[in-house]
Each structure stands twice: as C-alpha cells, then as structure tokens.
Computed example of a mutant assay.
Amino acid sequence: MAALEIDNVRKVFGSKTEVLKGINISIENGEFLILVGPSGCGKSTLMNSIAGLEDITDGRILIGGKDVSGSSPKDRDIAMVFQSYALYPSMNVRDNIAFGLEMRKVPKEDRLKEVDRVAKMLQIEHLLDRKPSQLSGGQRQRVAMGRALARKPKIYLFDEPLSNLDAKLRVEMRTEIKKLHQNLGTTIVYVTHDQIEAMTLADRIAVMKDGIVQQFGTPQEIYDEPANIFVAGFMGSPAMNFIPAPIQKEQDQLVAKVTTADGRTYSLPLGQRGAALKDYEGRQVILGVRPERISEVNITEVEREDVVVVRAKTEIVEPTGPDTLIHIDLNGVEVGCRVAPDSAVKAGEEMDFMVDLSKAVFFDSETEARI
C-alpha cells in the first residue's frame, strides 16, 4: 500500500473542454478516499488519470512518493475494480482471479495459493469452478474484487463497483468492502455518486462539482461543516433544509426570523454565531438545518438556549419505519423534519417541533459559501 498525492492536476479535452481544474488531494498509507459528486463532475476522469488510463494535461500524480504522471498503467502498481465487473466469460472464477498473476509470471503453485486465500476471504470458494454467466451480480462483483485483491498492489481503485446491484445487495457489499479495508489496511480510491456509500465507507471524502473539489475532509467534517450549499445539499439523506432567513437584532442579540404558513413568526437565536453574522444584520442569509435537528419536542432539551419550539401545520407525512419524515412550511419553503413515529400527527394537523440550532449553518445568499 502507498500514499497518494494529486498535485494541481488538470485535464483538458480538445482545446477548450477543461474537465479537471487544478485538483489537489493527498491521503496517507491505508486511507480510504472517496470521490463523490453528480454525473459529469469529473470524478471518473480523475480515477482514470490515477490509473493511467487518461493522460493528464498538467500537474502531478504521486504514488508512494514516486511521480507516476507519465507512467503506463502497468507500471503504477494499481488494481482496478470496474462497475461492469470486466470478467472473462470463457474462464471460470478460479482462472479469472488468477489471470493477473499469470500475466505477471507468478508460478502456478503460488497462483493457486493466492486464489484460495482470496476466495476464502470473500467467501466464494464454492464458486471457483463456475463461469461468470452462472453467477449473480453480487457474486460477479466479489470475483472482480478477488481478482484485484490477488494482485496485492500499492493502491486499489474502485469505479462505482456497486451501482449495478439492487438496494439490498448494495448494502451487503458495502459492509463487505468496509470489512475488507479494516482487515487489510489497504489504500483505496473509490468513485461513487451515492453519498450514503461515501459517508459509510470513507476516511476522507472529496466532493466534486464541475471539475473542482468543492470540499475535502472527513465524512463528519463534510456533514457538519459543509463548505457551501452544494456540498450541504449533496451530502445527507434526506437533504439539508435551506431556509431564506432575515437577520435582525432583538434585545442586543442577533436572531434569524422564520414564519410559518399561517403567519406565526419565531426568532431563532444565533448565540456564538452572532459574531460571524454581524455584517449580515438587516440582510437575508440561507439557514441550513438538517431534518434530524427539527424533531418532536423533548422536555429535557427545550430549555437550552439554542433550541426553539415552533408550531406549524404538517403538509406531508412520510413514515419510513424507524422515523417519520414530516414536511412543514417555513419562510415559504418546504422544510423536512424527522420525528419518532409515535409522535407524528396526520397531514393537515398542527404539531410542535423542536428546532435545534446547535448544528445549524449559515450561507451567503449570493456566493452560497458557508459564513
């Protein structure tokens, strides 16, 4: 395994289409990096550049401190797991896993030992004599992972490996990949558009949009302290609420004002955030609050200074099992709230909601950057 450094990498297709716009990312040995973002953000191009499948226009890519920017894929000592599995249909599972080792002239006895080791690790020993056409999607993905694991490269690259699987199998395979990383301590770069995969698997996440890394940090940093509205809205399910809110002064304290659909107005205290928002007095900002921070009233919490109880009419009620999502109207926008199922009321009824501002974030209405 090895550290990875991406130093000011640019990629231009043709003369004008700039797909990667000065990417800077650095991870240590054994870290799990996830590149996440919507389609067309440049994450797969960056992955292919790390693998050597795309030439970069400018910058450097270093693996284990060695500049591999001009090296061919075979000289980078990486292994890649593709979205499409890329298994050889005429070979059985055993031969598919061993193929890379055979190309590297590994002796047959050592190849067989390595195949047995990987098959045991992935629990596919009973599939070794089957052809890919006889396997389910999840089994094929395990074989593709096995072929990569048998290589023992410096870095593993996963290109949306779970996107072809059904929801239940995706969760199971996600757990297997997490377990694999914990057991092996390997350096992994993983591309996905699924923010749940990003949050659950990563040591560090690079959130990309339009060829630019919008934020690079740990999953918790990105969830709690998003750099801008794009990151805040992309990471988290359900998405963060964005409420346009005027900042006003009341009794020498700055507050954010919110009004329900039936005209009830509430003052949300800014507390220590007031200092950062002093230049916004008399202006409108975007208040960002996660749905789990707007919940049923908890009598042990309501006395806190950063908690306000808001009474509002429920517009939509969505039971999910462990939680119920309720939609209300604040300042003319739809706001999602997450409550316990036994606390939920029916659509059209009023309910008291506890708004916890301890994790609230504020964004500039024009730049959309976090204040």
Rank of each mutant, 00 (worst) to 15 (best):
N8W: 03
V12P: 11
G14S: 11
S15G: 13
K16N: 15
K16P: 04
G22Y: 06
L35Q: 05
G40S: 07
K43Y: 06
G59I: 06
L62S: 03
P73W: 15
S84L: 05
P89G: 14
S90Q: 14
S90C: 03
L101C: 00
L101A: 01
E114T: 10
E114S: 06
V115L: 06
A119R: 02
L122A: 13
Q123M: 02
L128N: 08
G137D: 14
Q141G: 09
R142I: 08
A144P: 12
I155V: 15
Y156D: 15
Y156G: 14
L165F: 01
T175K: 04
E176D: 07
G185S: 06
V189P: 11
Y190A: 14
E197V: 09
A198G: 02
T200G: 11
R204G: 05
V207S: 09
V213R: 05
F216R: 03
G236H: 10
M240E: 07
D252Q: 14
L254V: 11
A256W: 04
S267A: 15
L268R: 11
R273Q: 04
R273K: 11
L277S: 02
K278C: 01
K278M: 08
E281P: 02
G288Q: 03
E301I: 04
V302P: 01
R304H: 05
E305Y: 04
V309T: 13
R311S: 14
G321P: 02
V339T: 12
P341T: 06
A344F: 08
K346A: 15
V355F: 14
S358T: 12
K359P: 00
R370S: 12
